[in-house]
């Protein structure tokens, strides 16, 4: 695999950084070389934030920012009103959005002309609210990303996320299980 670059858009508190770390963790378990890094600005709850991933079969040497991602993941669709989430996205790249809208509506809203750009949607907030009882869409979006990117195998990824969450929430098996459920549901529900 050639070097693949992902940009996550979220708002402070939505877990964009955590999702990027979970994704990297899972990819390492399958033998890939990875990077996951946040872009730290004057961070506050609710402010727009970015996180990034690099993924390759070869060692990754560069430590610069990512300007032309292959995949953009949007955790909060209201960001699209103020930020150009497609900035620098490769023409044949993938845009994955947490939204109630259809991919056609997103394509029109963002005026994406190239048919080569694939757009996927999933209502990750609904999934998060129903299963996690709060609007933290990062783990469901991770499930959707695995589906649309076809980069990693699903089952090993689930196991890796489970391990990381168990480490993070040692006394909350319910939190771990619900996140896993949310990932599976988003994996199933994401569509073009």
């Amino acid at each position: 695999m050639v070097l693949l670059e992902i940009r996550w858009h979220g708002r402070g508190g939505q877990g964009a950084k955590t999702a990027a770390l979970l994704f990297a963790d899972a990819a390492v378990e399958t033998g890939k070389y990875i990077q996951a890094f946040p872009e730290y600005g004057p961070e506050r709850m609710g402010a727009p934030v970015f996180a990034f991933n690099r993924l390759s079969d070869e060692p990754i040497l560069q430590h610069c920012g990512i300007k032309n991602p292959d995949i953009v993941v949007v955790l909060d669709s209201t960001l699209m009103e103020t930020i150009d989430v497609t900035e620098g996205l490769k023409e044949d790249g993938i845009l994955l959005v947490n939204t109630q809208k259809t991919s056609k509506e997103i394509r029109e809203q963002l005026k994406i002309k190239s048919e080569k750009t694939r757009i996927y949607v999933v209502d990750a907030s609904k999934i998060a609210k129903e299963i996690l009882k709060m609007d933290i869409p990062n783990t469901p979006m991770l499930g959707a990303l695995i589906k649309v990117s076809k980069l990693l195998e699903f089952e090993p990824m689930l196991e890796s996320v489970r391990k990381r969450l168990e480490h993070k929430f040692p006394n909350r098996p319910d939190v771990v299980e619900n996140n896993i459920k949310a990932i599976i549901r988003a994996y199933e529900e994401v569509k073009e």
């Binding site: 770390l21 990297a24 963790d25 990875i34 990077q35 996951a36 890094f37 730290y40 990754i60 430590h63």
Partner: peptide, 12 residues
């Protein structure tokens, strides 16, 4: 290590 670039950058 370089702050954030490496300190907060996850790698293998």
């Amino acid at each position: 290590t370089d702050g954030f670039i490496i300190s907060h950058g996850m790698e293998r």
